[in-house]
Design a protein around this nucleic acid. Structure first.
Lengths: 240, 240
DNA sequence: GTGTTGACGATTGTTGACAATAGACAAGCT
DNA sequence: AGCTTGTCTATTGTCAACAATCGTCAACAC
């Protein structure tokens, strides 16, 4: 009965070093919000909490810094990266560029499998909307865009895209908050996009994506303003 | 006379940790080709050569791995990342997506400063072409595209773009080789693009960029085939 | 009272040593 | 001969201690 768990444990130990495991662990903690943006990460504290030495932890820190999730200041330590609205807008713009290109590309090389996946997600979104399940809808939203990107069949495009999405996840509060207002119109927007892709109508798809992205950006701005005003937190404002 | 050098040295020590310096050092060595793709990097060897302990070196390794320049296998060590043609094509496609969006965006928000920079580079390119200075032309080619990206005024777009270009630099042999055949037509292509941008003609600029990128991709393919055939090197072929 | 200076504590930066693993090589068995 | 197995070495993974730096805070001079 322990064979399966043992073999997986062996696999785990063979593939992952401690630094890798710590990196994944920290990444989960950051994107889940357990570590809030701006929060200081003390080396001895985190290392003792994970039963790991400082060496692998520092290696994980460097990887996550390069990934844009942490920020280190020499002799000051590392903190969870806090995105300013300007930074978020910039990242969002880059993502929008890729979204447009993805739509144009996908409209020409749509496969039945990808289309089925997309339509399945749309169906789930409708269900989530009916249930007012915001968490599930947010996850499906990410899934839909990720599925479109995946549909292009370019592994590095996926990596680049996820790199951006991961960073935008640092604005999780604003992002989730913004979904509340999005739930009403967003489903139909997504459905229109998928339909255009299914027809192979690249230009319509691109136009719809452009509009959809603009709405998303506006929602993000409003949510950020609302959040900044209500929380009165100055740590996220226009710092370079 | 030592004040300026001393102050810069102080700045250097205040801003950069050893790991950061090692990272920059290694990155230069990689992009310059001093460390060839596929080459093994022994930790003690490199660390002794740089008069640095293994700790900071490993931190630099992790950062460069995340940046896509190194590849680590547990208990096997790190090697300079070797791009397969398929990977290079994928990265190139992503870069092409951004190039198109950059052209569309830049055509609408072109500033006199950016335009002057672009035209200056074009002028230098013509001079380099006349002198048959391939090295200089290659550098100018990178500069031109970088200047266009910079012209959009989005810092994260610049980062994302350079991230891709840096990785494509791992195919340096093929890239430089391909410039030989590019020198003839590439200058006029670039000039047409800049002219379209200057006129604010977004659609023409996008179309020209698309064509230009397609030519570049074709050159990269030919150069890679030629290089692979002449070198008989099997280490770069379709490995995952 | 205000500003400066010095020492202290906490935290990060760096190093060298120890443990564990993979690959090579040779000895032994079939 | 071919295959297995045991050992051995080089290299990586991990750790704990040392050194350097920053922020704090109290003592002191003015």
């Amino acid at each position: 009965m322990t064979t399966s768990t043992t073999s997986s444990a062996i696999e785990l130990l063979q593939r992952h070093s401690l630094a890798t495991l710590v990196q994944e662990m920290l990444e989960r903690s950051i994107v889940s919000g357990e570590f809030a943006p701006g929060e200081k990460l003390n080396e001895v504290e985190v290392s003792t909490r994970l039963n790991v030495s400082r060496g692998p932890l520092r290696e994980a820190f460097r990887a996550l810094e390069q990934a844009g999730l942490l920020k280190t200041e020499k002799n000051r330590g590392v903190t969870v990266r806090a995105l300013s609205l300007r930074e978020a807008e910039e990242i969002y713009e880059v993502r929008a560029m890729l979204d447009e290109s993805v739509a144009r590309s996908l409209a020409n090389r749509m496969t039945p499998e990808t289309l089925a996946t997309l339509k399945g997600i749309i169906t789930s979104m409708k269900a989530a909307k009916k249930d007012h399940d915001l968490t599930r809808y947010t996850a499906l939203n990410v899934q839909l865009h990720d599925a479109m990107v995946t549909g292009v069949g370019n592994q590095h495009l996926i990596e680049t895209y996820r790199h951006l999405v991961r960073q935008l996840g640092l604005l999780r509060q604003a992002a989730i908050e913004s979904e509340k207002s999005a739930l009403a119109t967003s489903v139909t927007e997504h459905e229109k996009i998928v339909n255009a892709l299914a027809k192979g109508d690249a230009e319509s798809a691109v136009a719809l994506v452009r509009e959809h992205v603009a709405h998303g950006l506006a929602r993000m701005r409003r949510a950020h303003e609302h959040w900044a005003a209500s929380a009165g937190n100055g740590g996220n404002t226009g710092n370079t």
